[in-house]
């Protein structure tokens, strides 16, 4: 099995995410696109750690070889979950304040 498929898939996901962030104004959609990008990275991490890990120097380590990348992914998922809760809370607050989730209204830092 070639890794190229995975790479192409995750690049495609990532690009969709970027384009979404750049073009959309709805905060929730931007948020989802960010998640999409995160998951593209996750996919890549899992793929690489499964297929391109080093041969372990000692035999007893063979069982855990190639798992470090996957552990990263778990971390990312946990952090992403926390981030979603904070991010959604922010969006809710934003909606309460300006009755909109359009990010273009939020340019007050400029002044």
């Amino acid at each position: 099995m070639f890794i190229d498929y995975y790479i192409i898939l995750s690049v495609a996901l990532f690009c969709i995410g970027i384009v979404g962030v750049l073009t959309r104004r709805n905060a929730i959609i931007i948020f989802m696109c960010v998640e999409l990008m995160l998951n593209a990275v996750n996919l890549l991490l899992v793929a690489f750690s499964k297929m391109h890990h080093l041969t372990p120097p000692k035999k007893e380590l063979a069982a855990v070889a190639g798992t470090d990348g996957q552990i990263f992914v778990f971390f990312i998922m946990v952090v992403a979950a926390a981030e979603v809760s904070v991010g959604l809370a922010i969006i809710v607050m934003m909606y309460r304040n300006i009755h909109s989730v359009d990010v273009n209204f939020l340019n007050r830092l400029k002044h």
Partner: peptide, 14 residues
């Protein structure tokens, strides 16, 4: 550069 538009910031970043 600090336009306040999130999209601008992201674009710049990318």
């Amino acid at each position: 550069l600090q336009s306040g538009q999130v999209a601008n910031y992201v674009l710049l970043m990318v």
